[in-house]
């Protein structure tokens, strides 16, 4: 892939991730699990895809753009620390798990979702200055098993259909 195509693809994926973050607000999962930070994690589909398709450095660039622009669009600077800590914890864990080579895209994605929630709890601890948010950790981790599997499933379906698609000229 030429570097121009790579940059263009990164930009498209960053835009897609931002769109997912926005669309997610129309699925109020918090009504069923009334905890702050419970989300489907649709934007993580882009992260998983980018990590496998483009590699760690491009996936990190897309993540950084998504976090910065997302906070800018929401006009909420305190949300930035949540998305940065959550996003980068998830990315770090997924890079390490993928390097192990024994885990499937499902395992990598579940690990990423769990790390994302841990990172967000850490951000809440730093923002609030007391240990109260830690009480949410068990439920958030259980939820991450479901959302991580969902993200992994969608990414797996995507790669499966792409195997029949001529990718050589990309």
């Amino acid at each position: 892939m030429t570097s121009t195509r790579r940059i263009a693809l990164c930009a498209v994926l960053a835009a897609l991730a931002l769109t997912f973050s926005y669309l997610e607000s129309f699925f109020p999962l918090a009504l069923f699990v009334p905890l702050p930070g419970v989300k489907l994690g649709l934007a993580n589909i882009v992260t998983v895809f980018a990590l496998y398709f483009l590699g760690a450095s491009s996936a990190l660039a897309i993540l950084l753009v998504r976090c910065l622009l997302g906070a800018l669009f929401a006009g909420n600077a305190s949300a930035l620390i949540f998305s940065l800590l959550g996003g980068f914890s998830a990315m770090l864990v997924m890079i390490l798990l993928r390097r192990c080579r024994i885990f499937s895209i499902f395992g990598v994605s579940i690990g990423g979702a769990a790390a994302h929630n841990c990172g967000q709890i850490l951000a809440a601890l730093l923002t609030l200055g007391n240990a109260a948010p830690l009480a949410y950790l068990p439920v958030l981790l259980l939820v991450s098993l479901l959302t991580g599997s969902l993200t992994g499933l969608i990414a797996a379906l995507l790669f499966r259909s792409m195997a029949h698609f001529p990718m050589d000229h990309i």
Binding site: I102, F103, S104, I105, S144
Partner: peptide, 21 residues
């Protein structure tokens, strides 16, 4: 890319459950 869930993935699920507990 491993596209199907495998036995090693259960290790990750177990680790997450352990952390939750």
């Amino acid at each position: 890319v491993k596209l199907k869930p495998n036995a090693a993935d259960l290790l990750i699920v177990a680790a997450v459950l352990l952390l939750a507990a």
